[in-house]
Nucleic acid binder design. Structure first.
Lengths: 338, 338
DNA sequence: CTGAAAGCGCTTACAG
DNA sequence: CTGAAAGCGCTTACAG
């Protein structure tokens, strides 16, 4: 392999001068700089990043932990993180934790060994117990996409999920709905709380009997949960599904039950998942859109800022505001029309 | 940061001895080894991987290029690659190329600088033009998930897509179908060729007019392409969709056209995508399942083998066999029943 | 079984 | 503006 020393000899200078023309941090006489550059081209020299890392103490890579890489949400997080990192000349070291705490712990331990300049941990369900391992990390750490129990020891950039639920609830309230159901997952408590707050603002209560946990995050899970909701309250006029992945199942269950959407049943989703947004002969979904890319970008930039500004991380909680996108799956209940 | 030297002083030995007990490659007297280990624990020492990399010339990380990280197929590739790497103590450096050749080229150039021990390139559509950049890479390179024009300069581990198409075609032929259509993408030529081969074996031709390119890989794309196929040949009795992502749209189009599946129309998919496999009130999909995980595992292991066995890469093309999974969306055509 | 030496390829002050 | 020196933290032969 061709080294900086080789280039130096070829150009008739010392390797420090080569280093200087490459880094550009020290002025070099144009003539010798040109000679150096010529030598670099002729030899096809490319700097050894590992040696540079050892000398500078920076690897120019940041680690990203995500529960999984499949699915619209986390794949956006990964791709956005990569984009931002690339803009700043950083590489991405990826670890998918698969909701497996032990696996996460192993990876965490691996990173501690100084192969990463900073670490972004996305998603909350798995490695919360192992976060203390990071307390004395030698590099900045930030968290994103955290919904419940955001740890206070690290900066967190996430979605205001409570507000997301509120937006869904307020929309249904404004349309005049009173008997509603929520289809959700155990991890989405804040969304449910926000939804309830919207109803509480009008003196209405969303009882526990109207909140149904979907057995799995899929169309099938949504289908079963919707039927459960219909059984629990045949008079309901609207449903809030706390993730869009459930929505196709809800629509199908409505069709099977002879309820037309939105005339007999309004449906508000969450995530604005593009894959389920338009349903082919089904109404386009009203949904709460979360600014996933903004979130990922903010989180990575926070980390990168900490890297340049002498490691000062401001420990803050940043909540990005979701937005309600009204489409065709919601309208006033029959009682409010007539 | 605590260094090997610190541990050595604490244990009253030199750093070489510490290195020896850590690596285990040179025998150390049990008593002193114990003292070293104690010192490591007390100091919380963890070796600096960058320094080790510079000394050994190995970074213990392999790069993975994928077009995207979303979608069932590539997310499986990524997660499997990560699993295999982890088993062998390697890290994953991820680059998503987004079907953007220029972006891929930049990343490629970045990696050349020796921060990766090996490179796996998955997917074919984007960086085929830039592959020559890798010709003189200083690390082993392998390709996977390549469907068309697999380069001959690198080992390739991929799916036998031609055989996949053949399996779909043979299945329909065995059921007795003669008038069929193919819904596909420009990248899936081998699948179409294999499908045609199955018909050709019985002296039948699948005309170009029966092959429809879906405008986009989505349910909507499948919907439109299916309607096109119905218009082109109202008498068709079966459809082969070369990726499952089209299938929900095909089913919906069939429903809209009053064709019941499988009675009036058989449908064979490809990929066995779990997300569309079971359709809630729709027939479960007959599909050609591709061994994605096996493929990714083989490719990574090939690379890892090259790394240990003194860089000897056997330049071969390995084709993994797909498998037909018969479910409820196919049956003999009416003409063959009665 | 343990220590002294050299080296991996770069960068960073520091002289000239 | 350019060169000589030291150092980043490890590993790898090589003596003892």
């Amino acid at each position: 392999m061709v080294t900086m020393q080789d280039v130096a000899e070829r150009a008739g200078v010392t390797k420090q001068t080569v280093s200087n023309v490459i880094s550009g941090r020290v002025a070099v006489r144009p003539a010798t700089a040109a000679r150096v550059r010529a030598a670099i081209d002729e030899l096809g020299y490319t700097p050894n990043l590992v040696a540079r890392s050892l000398a500078t103490g920076s690897t120019k890579t940041v680690g990203l932990f995500v529960p999984t890489v499949g699915g619209a949400f986390y794949s956006e997080v990964v791709e956005t993180a990569e984009d931002v990192l690339e803009e700043h000349g950083y590489h991405l070291l990826l670890c998918t934790t698969r909701l497996d705490g032990e696996r996460a712990r192993r990876h965490l331990a691996g990173l501690t060994s100084r192969s990463v300049d900073a670490l972004l941990v996305a998603g909350d369900r798995d490695l919360i117990d192992h976060l203390p391992l990071l307390a004395d990390a030698r590099f900045p750490v930030a968290l994103c996409a955290w919904e419940t129990d955001a740890p206070v020891d690290f900066p967190v950039v996430t979605i205001d999920y409570e507000h997301a639920g509120f937006l869904a609830g307020r929309h249904l309230r404004e349309l005049g709905h009173e008997r509603v159901a929520v289809l959700t997952s155990p991890d989405h408590a804040p969304r449910v709380a926000g939804f309830r707050r919207a109803f509480a603002a009008d003196g209405l209560t969303v009882p526990d009997s109207a909140v149904h946990i979907a057995a799995e995050p899929s169309a099938a899970g949504g289908y079963a949960a919707a039927n459960e909701a219909f059984a629990a309250d045949p008079a309901l006029t609207a449903i809030f599904a706390t993730h869009d992945i459930l929505s196709p199942g809800v629509l199908e269950a409505a069709r099977a039950a002879g309820r037309s959407v939105p005339d007999d049943l309004s449906l508000v989703g969450h995530d604005d998942d593009p894959e389920v947004r338009s349903g082919l002969g089904r109404p386009a979904l009203t949904s709460v859109a979360v600014p996933t890319r903004d979130m990922a970008r903010q989180a990575v930039e926070l980390l990168l800022r900490a890297l340049t500004k002498s490691g000062t991380v401001v420990n803050s909680l940043q909540l990005l505001r979701p937005e309600l996108i009204v489409r065709d799956s919601t309208c006033p209940p029959r009682s409010a029309r007539a």
